[in-house]
Amino acid sequence: MSSELNAERDAILAALTPVVDGIAATFGPVCEVVLHDYRNPEKSVVAVAGSVTGRTAGGAMSEIGMRVLARGDEASDELNYVTRTRNGTLVKSSTMVLRDSTGAVFGALCVNVDVGAVTQVHGLLGALAGIGAQPAELPTTTFGNDIDSVVDALFDAHQSRQRGSWAELDRAERLELFGGLDARGVFAVRGAVEQVAARLGISRASAYTYLSQARAAHDTSTGGSA
């Protein structure tokens, strides 16, 4: 990548840094705004205001960021989606990707709003009105300043859907595990292959082999390269 393009990306991030504080100040303590630079996934948070998910500057990207990273330049904005943090906080979020002048995705501006209090009030009013409908089950998302914890959470989520331990899985199921993790952006993180191999109790070489085969199977099924 050219130094001019890197300078352009740095300038975009610098221009957005005061916007982070401005948005958070406008919406108050229920709002958190996070600015990400995906050139450094392990320390992607370059600016943060608010504390809905406990992010800090220098922290790692979340599962959402890893998903954006996996999609590369095909990534698009994800607006007004609702999820839960691992401690149960109900969060409404928007993730807006950042592109340079070539159209390449290199970061994101994320807004997280704690809607738990609003939901509680809504539930109370619904109960008083006799319409106490239960909210739909929401996915749990890992927000962490440590990229290893995010990789572990994604690994655990995928493994929980498997029918048994690694030794009990057939080849197709093993490829599905690696393909699923790859689609979520796990292996875009430095050292993730080794981390997953350690969790599975297999060698680094075996992990790379399964990853390569999973990618080849995906390319064959889609008729092109990912």
Rank of each mutant, 00 (worst) to 15 (best):
I202M: 01
P18S: 11
F106G: 02
L16W: 02
L128F: 14
E137H: 09
G65Q: 04
T17F: 02
S203C: 07
A205V: 15
T95F: 06
Q213V: 13
A172V: 11
S160D: 13
Q213S: 13
N145A: 02
N80S: 13
Q195N: 09
V193S: 13
A14R: 07
M1S: 10
E173Y: 12
N6R: 15
S225K: 15
N145T: 01
G179C: 03
L138I: 01
S94E: 00
A205P: 12
Y81C: 10
E78N: 12
S203M: 05
R55H: 07
I147C: 00
I12A: 09
I64C: 05
F178T: 03
W166G: 08
L109P: 00
V34E: 00
V189A: 03
D37T: 02
V111M: 03
L109N: 01
Y210K: 05
A192K: 09
D156T: 08
S212C: 10
V105N: 02
A15R: 08
A75C: 07
I131S: 14
T95E: 07
G88E: 05
S203D: 10
V48H: 00
A188W: 13
A104W: 03
S51H: 02
I64R: 02
A117G: 10
S93M: 02
V52N: 03
V20A: 04
L109R: 00
V115Q: 00
L90G: 03
D219V: 14
Y81A: 09
G201K: 09
G54F: 00
V196N: 01
T119E: 13
V121E: 12
Y81V: 11
S94Q: 02
G22T: 14
Y81I: 11
V48I: 06
A192N: 11
V52P: 03
L13C: 01
G50P: 03
N87L: 11
L128W: 12
A129K: 08
N6V: 12
Q134W: 04
A133M: 08
A183P: 11
L138K: 00
L138M: 01
A11I: 13
P135E: 06
V189R: 00
R67D: 13
L177K: 10
A129H: 07
A157C: 10
V30Y: 08
G59S: 07
A129R: 10
G185Y: 06
A214C: 06
H36C: 07
T89N: 04
A188V: 13
L5H: 12
G132N: 08
L35Y: 03
N80V: 07
E42P: 04
G185K: 06
A15T: 10
T83D: 11
G123L: 08
G59W: 00
C110E: 02
V150G: 00
N80P: 09
H158G: 05
V115L: 01
S203I: 04
V151C: 01
R39Q: 13
R55M: 05
S206V: 11
C110S: 03
S225V: 15
I12P: 10
G223Y: 11
A157L: 13
T83G: 08
A14Y: 03
E8R: 04
D21N: 12
A216Q: 15
D182M: 12
E74L: 11
S160I: 08
M1I: 09
G50V: 03
A192M: 11
Q162G: 14
E137Y: 08
T102P: 07
V189G: 01
G223M: 09
V151A: 00
L175V: 03
L125K: 08
A153K: 06
S44L: 07
E176I: 05
T17V: 05
G164T: 09
V82I: 08
N40V: 15
A216L: 15
T220A: 15
